[in-house]
Design a binder for these strands. Structure first.
Lengths: 153, 153
DNA sequence: TATTGTTATACTCTATAACTATA
DNA sequence: TATAGTTATAGAGTATAACAATA
């Protein structure tokens, strides 16, 4: 519960709207039985198949042990396959056809979520806002497609 | 770790930038030995003195039991006093002079944080962005000054 | 000796429910 | 009986450290 001093500034509004968007996205995903971490991994593997779990952990900025649990769940659902990597220590991760379908559902939810979050803004306002947020994300050095953008060393 | 489909949209960028801002604010506050929840309560009590702990819990959207721990900490530091309310069951909460000083430090950190988050944007861009975020927060029905804006029922 | 995936453990944050004292 | 504050407990979520297999 951080707060603004008197009138909220940009930093506070970003924190507030970001928490709101994150919560709404999780809610929108819930009926499909998908959690945000699972959605994030599906997306990453769709773009870059063959990643190892260590690669995934580095890309997501989480501990490798955390990846184990998420991949376990994905594998139990038949959405991801752990196949042999070049090195016999590593798992090469890839989406199965069912995983591709699951990602399709995630993409549909994300599209609806985007509409819901920006509802009430005119098209010109949306473009303006998108451009400003993109610029700010670039200035802050945030990696496209990976949330949370903030990593503690 | 929610993610965008291909190119991040407004919803994803808000989530990403919001998480970044939240983390940076906590980091900026840490050297002063203050956590974000403590900062939020200091601010709320400064604006509305005499609140009960139940009032506080409702305003923040957290469980009353959570408020106990935060107020305990504030009281141990001598920043907040639990005084008798009209009803002998309730505590009327108020900032002490030391609490006012602590709030001053929080306000200074928040000001620096605002500058850091918006660094690199031109003054005109800042105004544009602030106006758009204010509009979006109003559209989403977010309560000014309270984070997180998202409450689960 | 170093690295990958795994397991075990602990820590943080928060909510729910039970308890007490008032009303 | 209902409500304010408190305490106890439990559930997420995550990190750290130890471990076995492989390099």
């Amino acid at each position: 519960m951080p707060s603004s001093s008197r009138r909220p500034g940009i930093a506070f509004l970003l924190a507030q709207l970001g928490a709101d968007a994150t919560g709404r996205f999780a809610d929108a995903l819930a009926p499909a039985g998908i959690t945000p971490p699972v959605a994030g991994v599906l997306r990453l593997l769709r773009v870059e198949a063959g990643m190892s779990q260590q690669d995934l952990a580095r890309r997501l900025g989480v501990a490798p042990s955390r990846v184990v649990a998420v991949v376990d769940e994905l594998e139990e659902r038949g959405w991801v396959a752990r196949t042999r990597g070049s090195d016999r220590r590593t798992n090469a991760l890839a989406l199965t056809p069912a995983g591709e379908e699951a990602f399709g559902r995630v993409a549909a939810v994300a599209a609806g979520h985007e509409r819901a979050v920006t509802e009430g803004l005119a098209a010109a306002e949306r473009e303006q806002l998108l451009a400003l947020l993109e610029r700010l994300a670039a200035l802050r050095g945030l990696v496209p497609g990976v949330h949370p953008g903030y990593r503690r060393p």
